[in-house]
């Protein structure tokens, strides 16, 4: 285990921030050490309010402490600490945050709008503020290679157990692992509405997390499904754009995951006179197409 991994999260309350941090680390509360760096302050009419800032790290119990769930929360690589230093490096971060405090009220306000996710305050903070100290930066590349190898091995093994003929390709591209399962027979691993594909995605991420002790952002495609889906969605979005241009009003699509929504947003963005936005909470967040 990487000793000293910790996250700092800001949220509207200590509870919210801690919860988001625990989620980010993938640990339970009783396995965590929580430092409250800043107590939240109410302020008055939104003036002078401060978010809570907490630092959470797993207690050194190697077997139990599970780190990082991948996926929803991003950990921009640019925010990574350059070295394995911990406390020394943290302070300046905290100070930066203090300096930005003025925006905090507004930010939180907006994250509580309907349409935001229930834990948005925490999640948002986690996405932007999380500092994960891993060791040296030059291990990122090695880690990517190692994770790509784990993905390839796991998926190849899975094909074998299924008795399906196919090929697995994986590579890492900065912070994202891309894996592709090729072969006609592998369609069995897509399933209705890609439910099996999603399950395989979840399992692959879990295995990577277990084997390399780090989570990953994984893009997985099986039997060309993603490609087909993107094409179909793009065409569908184009039709909806036409419809809105003809008839006016707004059209709300069925709930989709974030990558599908992005395809729709991109397609709508390419058409003059219409715009798109998302509404609702994950996992039932939908794109709405409207006139500009």
């Amino acid at each position: 285990m990487v000793a000293g991994e910790w996250v700092e999260v800001e949220g509207i309350s200590v509870e919210v921030a801690v919860k988001a941090a625990l989620e980010e680390l993938g640990i339970e509360k009783d396995g965590a050490e929580v430092d409250i760096l800043q107590e939240p302050q109410r302020g008055f009419l939104g003036i002078g309010r401060q978010d809570a800032i907490v630092r959470v790290k797993p207690q050194p119990r190697p077997k139990r402490a599970r780190r990082g769930r991948g996926g929803r929360k991003r950990r921009p690589s640019g925010q990574k600490q350059p070295s394995g230093r911990r406390p020394g490096n943290q302070r300046p971060e905290a100070k930066q945050r203090q300096a930005r405090k003025g925006q905090a009220g507004k930010k939180t306000e907006s994250s509580r709008r309907p349409g935001g996710r229930p834990k948005t305050a925490g999640n948002k903070a986690a996405g932007r503020e999380v500092q994960a100290v891993t060791g040296q930066d030059n291990t990122v590349d090695d880690l990517g290679k190692e994770q790509a190898a784990v993905v390839e091995e796991f998926l190849s093994g899975l094909l074998e157990e299924f008795g399906l003929e196919g090929k697995v390709e994986s590579r890492h591209d900065g912070r994202t692992l891309c894996a592709e399962v090729l072969g006609e027979q592998t369609e069995a691993l897509v399933g209705p509405k890609a439910s099996v594909l999603q399950a395989v995605h979840e399992l692959t991420k879990t295995v990577v997390q277990r084997k390399t002790a780090r989570n990953c952002r994984l893009r997985l495609d099986i039997a060309g499904y993603g490609e087909k889906r993107r094409k179909a969605l793009g065409i569908y979005a184009g039709q909806l754009a036409d419809q809105v241009l003809d008839e006016g009003g707004e059209i709300m699509l069925e709930p989709m995951n974030s990558s599908d929504r992005k395809v729709v947003h991109d397609a709508i963005g390419a058409v003059d006179g219409v715009r798109s936005y998302s509404e609702g909470r994950e996992p039932r967040r939908s794109v709405v197409v409207a006139l500009k």
């Binding site: 691993l189 399933g191 099996v196 399950a199 395989v200 979840e202 399992l203 879990t206």
Partner: peptide
């Protein structure tokens, strides 16, 4: 089982796909 049963759900889904074979 995973947090909120996510991994368990994924295992069930993959098992079902295997069963369909």
């Amino acid at each position: 089982i995973g947090r909120g049963g996510r991994v368990a759900r994924a295992i069930r889904s993959v098992a079902q796909a295997a069963a369909e074979e």
